[in-house]
Amino acid sequence: MTTQVQQKIRVLIAKPGLDGHDRGAKVIARAFRDAGMEVIYTGLRQTPEMIASAAIQEDVDAIGLSCLSGAHMYLFPKVIELLRERGADDIVVFGGGTIPDEDIPKLKAAGIAQVFTPGATTGEAIEFVKSNIRSK
């Protein structure tokens, strides 16, 4: 190992729920990579349990959840709940997808740090992650 410090931001991008629309998740994964981050991509149809567990093993700084099925009100808070149970609630969780405005305050109250709706840029997401992850 080296003594020179090489901090890299690690982000888990996951698609909870049953929908297969992974365009957004993939675009974000690429954009994060191009911004110099390490992106752990876990693919489609992940249960909240799988996501929380992977995030802890990978010791990520942030989790990005993408859901276009309408089940975000169940799935997103569940991930937060599981992280809390395992003492990993310092991981910043953000979400994206077809999410009605009225759900956003509820998701934020449940612990989702930010919600990106269609039209948000990858630049905004990158900026958000860079300025919101907690230093370890």
């Binding site: 729920g17 049953l18 929908d19 249960t47 099925s69 089940a71």
Partner: peptide, 22 residues
Amino acid sequence: DLPTLMGYDSDHPFSAGEVGKC
């Protein structure tokens, strides 16, 4: 809905939160 599209019944664990949604 997605459980139907994915070949799961409504009471399958993967269907939680998705029944009748899309």
